[in-house]
């Protein structure tokens, strides 16, 4: 018995060794690696699947959902086989992130907008049908509205026209791009509307007063699992949830979108730009990897072929960007034009 064990172990070791040699030889990589936003993840997933089906010889791309911030960190860690080729982002790259990229040798980054997503406020079908404005949301969710700690307990405290139900909002964690979008698109806007002094502040003080989300339990951090928020809303009809529009669309029989400034989150209002919670979705590609990684160019071409109004990505919940934007993105990708760092914030 012992002998057969030893034999098995040795032969297995030999097998493992030659396997290793065969696939890592030279340190090159023969499949595409994508990291980043959980909002863009399902779309990149679909493109990857089509890529595999249309290019039978190619290895399947590897797509990890790490959140935009986490993805940028991995993406900007350097150039080479051990670093990802593409990062999904639910917000534009920050200047600080670009600086990291540049310091690590990945200065040439191609930026392409793949579509639009709306951050939707939603409640259960049997909810109170609350109608909010950006100013209401700012006063209810900001940590320091107007520079003072937030004391609002019910929606009525925020705006006397609203019902007296406790403020309870389930939303994404601080590592999420959706959370950044909430701060940029809704809170900052509401802040500028209600607080005339905020604009004069320097950027750090502005962020603190306008973008910080309260942490006393009224805003509940529900993690990256958006299905969980859907379940919580059904269990608690007085609560509101914040997530990407695709989840609202998929759960249309359970949830109702809450209008902001009188505009309900629908495909048309988000695509048309009248819904305040609309944000662009991006992918960033390392130029240096375009020729080094086999199939990367075809993958990007596949992406560009899928993001149109009648394309498969829209069926999956993406909101198509205006044609001019998409044409521009496709051009950037096919010409491999790196982004201009001076446009970043």
């Amino acid at each position: 018995m012992l002998r057969s064990f030893a034999l098995l172990a040795v032969s297995a070791l030999a097998l493992a060794a030659c396997n290793d040699q065969a696939s890592t030889g030279g340190g090159a990589r023969d499949q595409i690696r994508v990291v980043g936003s959980s909002t863009v993840y399902p779309f990149t997933q679909l493109v990857a699947e089509q890529f595999v089906n249309k290019n039978p010889g190619m290895k399947a791309p590897v797509i990890e959902s790490t959140g935009t911030g986490g993805g940028m960190k991995l993406f900007c860690a350097g150039v080479g086989a051990q670093h990802p080729d593409i990062v999904n982002a639910s917000r534009p790259m920050k200047a600080s992130e670009y600086a990291t990229c540049k310091a690590n040798g990945a200065a040439d980054v191609i930026e392409a907008q793949v579509g639009i997503d709306g951050i939707a406020f939603a409640e259960a079908k049997n909810g109170p049908r609350i109608a909010l404005t950006t100013a209401d949301i700012y006063k209810a969710l900001a940590a320091n509205p107007g520079g003072k700690p937030n004391a609002a307990k019910t929606w009525k405290d925020v705006n006397s026209a609203l019902p007296a139900i406790p403020i309870q909002v389930y939303g994404p964690p601080s590592t999420s791009g959706t959370r950044d979008a909430l701060a940029e698109l809704i809170l900052a806007k509401g802040c500028e509307e209600t607080d005339a002094g905020a604009k004069a502040l320097d950027s750090d003080a502005f962020d603190k007063r306008c973008k910080a989300v309260r942490e006393d339990g009224a805003y509940v951090d529900a993690g990256e699992n958006d299905n969980l928020i859907v379940q919580k809303l059904q269990a608690n009809p007085n609560a509101l949830g914040i997530f990407g529009y695709s989840y609202l669309e998929e759960n249309a029989n359970k949830l109702e979108g809450a209008p902001i400034n009188g505009v309900a989150p629908t495909y048309d209002t988000i695509a048309g730009g009248s819904y305040p919670g609309a944000r662009p979705l991006f992918i960033y590609v390392k130029k240096a990897h375009l020729d080094a990684i086999p199939g990367l160019r075809q993958f990007l071409a596949e992406y560009a072929a899928s993001w149109g109004k009648d394309g498969p990505l829209v069926k999956r919940g993406l909101i198509a960007a205006p044609d001019a934007v998409l044409a521009h993105s496709a051009e950037l990708l096919s010409n491999a034009t790196p982004l201009d760092p001076s446009t970043l914030k």
């Binding site: 065969a22 696939s23 595999v52 399947a60």
Partner: peptide, 17 residues
């Protein structure tokens, strides 16, 4: 260590994702 990715084909070896 990144073993949470979407991969559309089964791995063919020990170093495949």
């Amino acid at each position: 260590i990144g073993m949470r990715a979407f991969i559309a084909t089964p791995p063919s070896g020990l170093t495949d994702p």
